[in-house]
Design a protein around this nucleic acid. Structure first.
Lengths: 146, 146
DNA sequence: TGTAAATTGTAGCCAAGGCTGTAAAATAAA
DNA sequence: TTTATTTTACAGCCTTGGCTACAATTTACA
């Protein structure tokens, strides 16, 4: 059993943590999109928005709208009725996100979580891993090579 | 370096993972509120919405609106100009959330993440931990008692 | 080539979770 | 007991990320 708290954390510190979590939540969409687009291009040669929609499990209209926003933000390039492409900035973000995703998945598996559950949980967890925690995960994996 | 993917996961499986992450994101707010309200009551005897706002780092108007929704959903009870209270359902959710939060924090610390970073990252991660992963974390901690 | 199917785009709707500003009620202080 | 402060409530606005429905364009095939 976990006991109830006997002392609250500092007010400002707690607010900063919640803020960090909200920021991560807001950044998650962009990361999911560029990571998926990058993977699609790498494996199939192109990223069609219809495939992005199917793989995210959302409607294609949602994808179009979000892609428009990410294009304004400088992560994605599109040509009408052609596939989706990443800018350099987008590609860098994708690489970083994929790496973080992979490290989280591997850590969960190394701790004993089964692969399918690890894949699923990693999809949410990856967006909340700070640089320090990522480094910690990496060195743990380093020390537990199979 | 993490290599790029050489094979994409199954389409439906991937969509299901993204859906799980979205569901977790949507449930996060309710969990944060009940957990915080429960902690405030346990340590200070009451949960004023002004304190909830300060600790979440949002405006009090946001708290009022969210609390109204959570009341409709049966997690919180309020009496005008009195503090916030949890229903039995809310209290159960709070207990479960606090436990999950604590386990995640402890795991990060056990792996070598410093306490402040662990606290911050746990705030986001906790919402994406499945029952199986939670159990795995618990047994890891069990085997690494200091 | 011309038509059907697939793909992409557009319009408009909704809920959640932020915000500011203002009003009302309760509590504290003079 | 007034008055000032704090707390709570309410109104209205914005953005994000969902959706359906419909239009336009491209691609495939008969």
């Amino acid at each position: 059993m976990t006991p109830s708290l006997e002392q609250l954390p500092d007010e400002q510190a707690q607010a900063a943590r919640f803020q960090q979590a909200r920021d991560a939540r807001n950044a998650a969409t962009a990361q999911d999109y560029v990571e998926l687009i990058s993977d699609l291009i790498a494996t199939t040669g192109e990223a069609r928005s219809v495939d992005v929609a199917k793989r995210l499990g959302v409607s294609h209209a949602t994808v179009v709208k979000t892609v428009n926003r990410l294009q304004k933000e400088g992560l994605i390039n599109t040509k009408p009725y052609r596939g989706l492409f990443l800018t350099d900035v987008g590609e860098n973000l994708a690489t970083e996100s994929r790496h973080r995703h992979q490290v989280v998945t591997n850590l969960l598996i190394a701790l004993g979580v089964d692969e399918e559950t690890a894949q699923a949980d990693a999809e949410g967890i990856e967006h909340h891993i700070s640089a320090q925690t990522l480094a910690t995960f990496e060195s743990y994996l380093q020390g537990h090579r199979s």
